[in-house]
Simulated assay, not measured.
Amino acid sequence: MWSSLWLIWKIGDERCITLVGYIIFNKGVEQLGASKASIYLNLTPIVTTLISVLLYSSTMTWKQTIGMCMVLIGVYIATTNTTSKNENIALHE
């Protein structure tokens, strides 16, 4: 009985954390705009993995670490290219 109650609590806890994350993301969309905020949605798996390591004592594999690095590089490239394109467009107008 206790294991089933724990499972129900854990599933509810994970859904609540995910819901809070998406509420915060939607507030970011309101402030930054959809195009800029959507780039940072790619950080969700990284934050999820780090939270699971900190709160649930999960272990992180080397594949996850490489994946995190790839996501961070992709977000960096998308952010810097977007910024430089916007500056170029503003200069030509």
Rank of each mutant, 00 (worst) to 15 (best):
T65Y: 07
S3K: 13
L72E: 06
K27C: 10
I73D: 07
Q64H: 06
I66R: 08
C16R: 13
S4T: 12
T79A: 03
K63N: 12
I89A: 06
G12T: 09
V29Q: 06
D13Q: 13
T48M: 10
A34D: 06
E14P: 01
L72K: 03
W6E: 14
M60Q: 02
S4M: 10
N42F: 15
W6T: 10
T44L: 14
S35R: 12
W2P: 09
L41P: 00
K85C: 00
A78S: 15
T49L: 15
I51G: 03
E14K: 04
K63T: 10
I23W: 09
G21H: 08
L43Y: 00
M60H: 09
K63E: 10
T48H: 06
G12C: 11
G67N: 13
A78Y: 05
S38P: 02
I11V: 15
A90F: 02
Y22A: 05
T59E: 13
L54H: 07
E93L: 11
G28I: 02
V47M: 10
A37P: 06
I73F: 13
T79F: 03
I8N: 01
T44G: 01
I8S: 12
P45Y: 02
W62V: 13
L32M: 14
Y56T: 01
S84E: 15
N88Q: 13
T61W: 00
A78V: 04
E93W: 00
K85G: 04
V71C: 05
T65E: 03
L54T: 05
Q31A: 10
T48L: 06
K85D: 05
N81Y: 10
S57L: 11
N81D: 10
